[in-house]
Computed example of a mutant assay.
Amino acid sequence: MSTTPAQDGTQWFLHTWRDHILEPIETALSVLDVEHTELTAEQDGLEEFLERLRAVDPAEQPSSPVGARQQSASDPVERLRDAYADTVLAVDHYESVYDESLVENVAIEFGPDYAALFHPETNVRFSPPLKQSLVAAAEQAVDERAALDRAVRLEQEAMREHRSSLQGILDALDSTVVPEWYRETFRNDVGALLEDRQEQLHSSVHRFETHEFCAYMYEEQLWTYPVLTSLARFQESVDS
Rank of each mutant, 00 (worst) to 15 (best):
S2G: 04
A6D: 05
L14E: 05
H15R: 14
R18P: 09
L22F: 06
L46T: 04
F49T: 07
L50C: 08
E51L: 13
R52Q: 13
A59Y: 00
S72Y: 06
A73C: 01
A73L: 13
D82V: 05
D86C: 00
T87W: 09
L89K: 09
E95I: 10
S96T: 12
V97E: 11
V97T: 12
V97H: 09
D99E: 12
Y114A: 06
Y114L: 06
L117Q: 01
N123T: 14
N123G: 08
S127F: 02
Q132G: 10
A137Q: 10
D143M: 07
A146W: 01
R153M: 06
L154K: 11
A158M: 12
S164E: 14
S165V: 12
L166K: 06
I169S: 04
L173I: 03
T176H: 05
V178T: 09
Y182K: 11
F186S: 07
D196E: 13
S203E: 15
S203K: 11
R207P: 02
T210K: 02
T210E: 08
T210P: 00
C214A: 11
L222Y: 08
L222S: 15
L222I: 05
T224Y: 06
P226W: 06
V227N: 03
L228W: 04
L231E: 08
R233T: 14
R233H: 15
E236T: 06
